[in-house]
Amino acid sequence: MRTLTYGQAMVEGLRELLESDDRIHIMGQYFLGLTPQRALVGELAAEHPDRFYYPPIAELGYLGTAIGAAMTGMRPIVDLATASFMFQAWAQITEEMANIHYMSDGQTKVPMVFHFNHGIRGGGAAQHSHSPQAMLWNTPGMEIMLPSTPYDVKGLLKTAASTDNPTAWGDHVKLFMMEGEVPEEDYAIPFGVADIKREGSDVTIVATSLMVQRSLAAAGKLASEGISVEIVDPRTIVPLDEAAILESVAKTGRLVVVDECHRSCGVGAEFSAIVAEKAFGYLKSPIRRVVTEDVPIPFSPPMEEYVEPTEAKIIQAVKEVID
């Protein structure tokens, strides 16, 4: 099978969507941030100038504009660039977008996708490093996808653009240069179906987005020490494939959650709570969370590394749950 970078797979997905569905329009252009591959988005925009809109620096205004447009039959894919900028649009996301279908008793649908680049990218400091997926998860009324591979980003994007629900699409800039197999033929990955990224028998790791890759690296090292780690990647947290998580924990009896949200009320906290509630009897040791500490993200590299989930911290946590 051919190999693409994450960025190439993402832009290929966007291109195929623009070519196959006239209702899809793109707002914003920083899908690949300011990374070297950003030119791929520029090329796509040049191919489809009538389908790209360059909004003013007004996240609230243009995210809301996308919501309104989605009610007329358009299927906007909106880019908010860095996830931290999402807070400028917060009122439209939480008060309007997520509530409209429910409040209207299903009369009105909001088929839109909004994209953001989340997480600690290195030197982003407190205002360019957020992982707001837990905050989004605390807002019923949207689906949330957090891909971790080139194959997943393209396949999940296809599903996001075809549903009648609003979808939050979080990427991590540290994934964009990663290479992986992506088939030539069309495919879509259904929401709510986890992928076992690595099979193992001693410890279950549940992770999404970049943390899947970091966990895979840690699992490789642990394997050389004779520790077998299974990695469950839910791929979407709404809907969530709870069964896959519980099944893996039932098999291994141990859980380490690796997540880039802050510790308190993060995505990792929710994964932990689900397992504690529904699979407590299978647990041979307490659940461990490897997550971002409850501080604003500092700028200085050693401080940044101190607060984020690192490979070393993952390895340590896995060893602790086995002891």
Partner: peptide, 9 residues
């Protein structure tokens, strides 16, 4: 923003 967006659509 919603009304503006409907017009955009």
């Amino acid at each position: 923003p919603l009304a503006t967006g409907a017009a955009f659509g």
